[in-house]
Design a binder for these strands. Structure first.
Lengths: 128, 128
DNA sequence: CTCGTTCTCAACCGGTTGGTTGAGCAATGA
DNA sequence: TCATTGCTCAACCAACCGGTTGAGAACGAG
């Protein structure tokens, strides 16, 4: 199976059904049956989805009678947030730098293109 | 191809090679060849990865001579951050609530659950 | 025009994924 | 004890994914 935690989390959330489950689990824990209700796929398919979420560390299951209530875990969200925040900030910074360049430029002038073997200063696309 | 934007973004980031590319693109734009350098996979494979990132809106390409410099886009990170933040907060809140319940509980007492209207008899963890 | 460089398209392959159906375990209520 | 409820395991299938190789488009330099 796919090695690292981050990959598993992202992969788990790449499915809309699974994201919907996560959304509903923020409101309350739920059994597999409850989770399955809104979708018209088999119970087994839902069970598989839950398993994927579990292996990604996004949810945990306990046992209460025959039920296996599914519970959303917060920790992994922190992991993601941390990863995301780092790159979001970097990307935004570069974005802002680009804005500065554009702002200081007379209308419609194509910037002198930097040779890209240098640490590439921004250049590029018409931003909406 | 897979419908919604969020799914595409998560799927794109579920691959460690692609995440590494994103990381490097926060430092500077890069050509496909430059991106390919560190990995020992074919150039075509790298090209495919870039395509996936592009279709997810994480990256854009302009044209400069034969080169197609790859540029990191910030916007999609905001989309993700927004999604994430919403659920992270919710998950954390529920987590804290559980802590409160546990803290205010004499040892071994079955909690009268703050039963949110939901049919969820949640029940904490210590199940052998 | 021809050559080299950069990159993409197309076809293919093995493994994974999202779904199915069928069988079956485990706990409870009767 | 036994049927019911809640869920999982196993086998299977079509579609997709990450990788390969081979061919070739687009562009700039001589």
């Amino acid at each position: 199976m796919a090695a690292d935690p981050l990959s598993r989390v992202f992969a788990a959330l790449a499915d809309p059904t699974r994201r919907d489950m996560v959304a509903r689990l923020t409101l309350a824990d739920a059994t597999v049956n409850e989770l399955a209700a809104p979708y018209d796929i088999s119970l087994q398919a839902v069970s598989k989805h839950v398993r994927v979420l579990e292996e990604a560390g996004l949810v945990s299951r306990s046992r209460s009678a025959q039920r296996r209530p599914v519970h959303l875990e917060a920790e992994v969200f922190d992991l993601m947030t941390k990863w995301l925040e780092r790159y979001r900030r970097a990307a935004e910074e570069r974005y802002r730098r680009l804005d500065d360049v554009l702002a200081s430029m007379p209308d419609g002038v194509t910037p002198t293109l930097p040779t890209d073997d240098s640490p590439t200063p921004p250049e590029g696309g018409a931003r909406p």
